[in-house]
Design a protein around this nucleic acid. Sequence first.
DNA 1: TAGATTGTTAATCGATTAACAATC
DNA 2: TAGATTGTTAATCGATTAACAATC
Lengths: 219, 219
Amino acid sequence: MSKNAISNSVIRRLPRYYRFLGELEENGYVRISSRELSEKMGFTASQIRQDFNCFGEFGQQGYGYNVSELRRQIGLILGLDRKTPIILMGAGNLGKAIATHIDFNNRGFELIGAFDINSDIIGRQIGKIIVMHISELEYFCKKNKPTAAILCIPQEAAEKETDRLISCGIRAFWNFTHYDLRIKYSDVVVENVHLGDSLTTLSYSLNSLEQEEKQNEDS
Amino acid sequence: MSKNAISNSVIRRLPRYYRFLGELEENGYVRISSRELSEKMGFTASQIRQDFNCFGEFGQQGYGYNVSELRRQIGLILGLDRKTPIILMGAGNLGKAIATHIDFNNRGFELIGAFDINSDIIGRQIGKIIVMHISELEYFCKKNKPTAAILCIPQEAAEKETDRLISCGIRAFWNFTHYDLRIKYSDVVVENVHLGDSLTTLSYSLNSLEQEEKQNEDS
DNA sequence: TAGATTGTTAATCGATTAACAATC
DNA sequence: TAGATTGTTAATCGATTAACAATC
């Protein structure tokens, strides 16, 4: 029986654990205690132990955790042992940057295709793949069976094309648009990246910081 | 006395409110109730009223909220009435895509410069700006006084250059690296975008979905 | 065995939701 | 005035932290 309903907060910390454990491994650490890890990562030791225990007992009393074994286990939980075929929808500036910048192979994916409608872009090479016209989508998917897609197309295009993608077998979306896929579709997983919202949040923080300082001056 | 300590959860919802209210405004909505908004956005009406009331009383009993007035107020809270000068550090694939893809002016910023060390990139034009060599940073900042920076450089470069950026007057960072600025610096605001972690989370979700389905088959 | 550190339960804290009096 | 809907307090829910018995 797998422990069900892992909270989103826990899940979002997993990639971070995986990263830190990788660094520790590189630096020759063999074992680490939750306290030591807590100091390095800025979580509490309690939280770290709670988090790991959502998935099993990876440590040993009196000893701590074996760094590379723990990392391996978290990798398995994250599904990084697989290479899910993923396609890029929209090979403009952003899509191209994502395709070249992200290390798909160490994150459980393999980028196998890219699609666009702009004839200036079609035929161009991005890494090892060549940008295809979107009319080739069905044929390509039937042949190569990708199950994930990156949405780097305009919002209107996303709204129009998701039905098509789903009927092509796509069930995981890395979504850079503001189109809210979850409303219309279930049985599909979505990870949203709202870059604009992120920058807007920074504006808020900077604004707050400056107003605080102004208040301190006045008092 | 401003209500202090707005929770992070609330702040992260503000850009979303701002966006939705913009759409409503475009569609001719004059007033909206928290219940109506809750249906459109997928939050509870309670939460929406609580969120707004962190910052003041923007509604009217028996009527609801005036869409454009509410949007304006949230814009002010987010600091979108200003145009904070921001610079891009690292004009490679990702930096260039961010610079061209993001609508800085509607998010409280103005992109005024870009820096890199790669001579192939220096001198190139991105939108209205031209990529400069990083050696020109001090001179440029003295003259143009940016207070925010986008970190699209490698992590090692980020670790090395942040001291320099801070002494140039930068106090807001939109950070695309994994370097944890907050450890070393206070009095600085940071918004982290961990694209790799985001994709890794998608891998987890897809993995979970597939395991669930397998279990359902078996039973 | 003694010391260390986990796994896990209990206590606390914070965020979300429900309820309702105030009021337009 | 009556109906609607806010602003706000109280109740609930969930996540984090603290504590400690189990055990290596």
